[in-house]
Design a protein around this nucleic acid. Sequence first.
DNA 1: TAGTGGTCTAGACCACAGG
DNA 2: CTGTGGTCTAGACCACTAC
Lengths: 242, 242
Amino acid sequence: MNAKYLNIYNEIVSQIQSGQLKKDTKLLSENDYMRLYDVSRDTIRKALNLLEQEGYIQKIKGKGSFVLDINKFDFPVSGIVTFKELAKMMNEKSRTILVSLDLDLADSFTMKKLNISSEDKVWKVVRVREIGKNKVILDKDYISEKFVPNLTKEICEDSIYEYIENSLGLKISFAKKEITVEKATKEDKKNLDLKEYDMVVVVKSYTYLDDASLFQYSESRHRPDKFKFVDFARRKTLYPNG
Amino acid sequence: MNAKYLNIYNEIVSQIQSGQLKKDTKLLSENDYMRLYDVSRDTIRKALNLLEQEGYIQKIKGKGSFVLDINKFDFPVSGIVTFKELAKMMNEKSRTILVSLDLDLADSFTMKKLNISSEDKVWKVVRVREIGKNKVILDKDYISEKFVPNLTKEICEDSIYEYIENSLGLKISFAKKEITVEKATKEDKKNLDLKEYDMVVVVKSYTYLDDASLFQYSESRHRPDKFKFVDFARRKTLYPNG
DNA sequence: TAGTGGTCTAGACCACAGG
DNA sequence: CTGTGGTCTAGACCACTAC
């Protein structure tokens, strides 16, 4: 059983996504929703605040809440979305090819990235993502053995995240991501269909669990023309007091 | 006078940024903070939730709240940050050069981007950003005259956002951004020090005001090696009930 | 068992928008 | 003036963590 405010949030999200609540439509007032769902105002406010945070609505003091027109699902690298979830949203055929799967003692690179000692073992997974007929993404994942004792070809070709969340019951909580553009390496050229491009877009992620432990470092290397990142951002004044 | 929870939020942010609260430190409990600031628990929770949202802390049920180690201020294109704010954070010398400033009737490109009619006028501002000794960013801004009746060389060379927020009193609320990599145009090559690169990273933004009206479209075109985007993302399960 | 954060409630006062 | 969202309070019960 979910929290009430999450149920309300999800219900309104579906109404927006289904087109039942159209762009610029005014939502019911907080008081109306209170009566509709028979909950307290605070519970409604939690749901609406979440909707606002996620870019679905805009609340305007004295006026009400209004549905925004944001194509959230263009290419949500923002947020933590896995390739499998992404592939499901897009409608092109996609495939994951496992290039290599190794479990070794940490070298200096992974020690630094994952904040571990030379006695820890680390999974190194290299995968190629094919969209349509082109190999356009090279994913390199480094995962501490501490958290994930076992990895198989099947898991890697399906979804590592799904295995971690569903089978191991670990909760992925947040990630720090960094996007840069770099010269393509030999490894990129060997594994990807780079055409004339000699650069790749590199998304580096540090992924953390629920308890704030760092469990994965990954590099996702994209062919430039196939890369698109969409972000929804709210303005924050850095120093509200001047 | 700010809201109490914002004051508390800002106080804890400074404690983290100053190093007074170090990585992995446990914060006071919500009950302790209640007594410390003599406010209700809800007020404390608002402050702590904001800290969590912004990536400063991680709350763990049954244990407490812990300071995270996130270099938030590497290159915050995430969030809506202006070049002037950014330049202040970095320590390199930077300069803005105004290339052109025009007010014309909307053409089909701007009509589509800004959702306006052919009778509306639009400011077109082209600026080059110099960091160190290199011209590395080409900014093209399109702003509805409806919202900003006047623009001068001085404003464009300082900060348009500052003018809009402080002088005009408009509130910038949120933006949709899109990052892609494109072939450099003649305009890019003419205005930027592109060296051997023949591609640019393009950040397209649609910026909205407080009342959800779209007031600006902009393209920020970066030399690839000088581009870096840092993001902090929390994991959201897309469909909590299934 | 004690302490933590997560959810929910009911009620209050405020600032803002619009008739 | 009424209705809207924004803030704040005081109190309750729950689930999880740690001892």
